[in-house]
């Protein structure tokens, strides 16, 4: 069931917008993101992708799930794992239950095969959070978590990790030990330079590889690129991805 969520900036997520025949500026954005990811992972070394942002409501789950669906449509096998223990949302976007997920596996109440669920989206599976665990950091330092990611790495073409914001919890540190790199989101016009800078500093402290940056909630009307650069009208979320780590450090 589709779930629309009100964000603290008042902007609502569209949920999953990728379909087989969809078109439009937003879809173009996701196609380009997907193609960049496919290119980055040509040798198979960048398949476990940690989706991060500085603060909440920057569009992590929207991007993580739409990217997964987009990859699935190219016949890649994808699993999305909800690692945001405080505000799990992946199950809502992909239309499955929150129950029997990562928490149950880590607590020894379920096997890996029990917590992986199919979704209605082609080649996209999900592991939801499961029950609430108040001290989520214990999950990410556990051997079980490492074993899980290792298994998913073997069984899937892409493992997309939807994470909690960097400046809110330190889960990203342990998650980066098992991921291939971070897809770093910035909500255009919303997140401050200081927040982005602090988040990047944190990632650099831990030598975390940044695969690329995505701008979300970009308003075409305010763009310097002008009316003719894109088609469609109204409010858009647009992304721009870059392979240049240095550009992010400058922000």
């Amino acid at each position: 069931m589709f779930f629309k969520k009100r964000k603290s900036n008042g902007k609502e997520t569209d949920g999953i917008i990728i379909t087989e025949n969809a078109s439009g500026a937003k879809i173009e954005g996701y196609n380009r993101l997907r193609d960049n990811i496919l290119f980055l992972n040509a040798d198979g070394n960048n398949k476990v992708i940690q989706v991060e942002s500085s603060v909440a409501h920057e569009g992590k789950t929207t991007v993580a799930t739409n990217l997964a669906v987009s990859l699935g449509l190219t016949d890649k096998k994808v699993v999305v794992v909800d690692l945001d223990f405080h505000r799990p949302n992946v199950h809502r976007f992909l239309g499955t239950s929150l129950e029997t997920g990562l928490a149950e596996y880590v607590l020894g109440q379920a096997e890996i095969k029990d917590v992986i669920k199919k979704t209605e989206y082609k080649h996209v599976d999900i592991i939801s959070r499961g029950a609430k665990i108040y001290n989520s950091s214990v999950v990410f330092i556990s051997d079980k978590f490492k074993t899980l990611i290792k298994k998913l790495r073997e069984d899937y073409d892409y493992v997309i990790l939807d994470c909690a914001p960097i400046l809110q919890v330190s889960d990203y540190i342990n998650i980066s030990q098992v991921s291939d790199g971070v897809l770093f989101l910035v909500a255009y016009g919303m997140t401050t330079r200081n927040q982005v800078s602090d988040a990047i500093k944190e990632l650099n402290k831990n030598n975390t590889k940044i695969l690329g940056t995505v701008f979300t909630m970009y308003d075409r009307k305010k763009s310097i690129y002008g009316e003719n650069a894109y088609y469609g009208k109204g409010y858009y979320s647009y992304y721009r991805s870059t392979l240049d780590d240095d550009a992010k450090k400058d922000k």
């Binding site: 069931m1 779930f3 809502r92 239309g95 239950s97 929150l98 129950e99 609430k132």
Partner: peptide, 12 residues
């Protein structure tokens, strides 16, 4: 009690 999760699940 994570009310919205329960509500989501039941309405699902």
């Amino acid at each position: 009690s994570e009310i919205s999760e329960i509500v989501y699940e039941l309405s699902r």
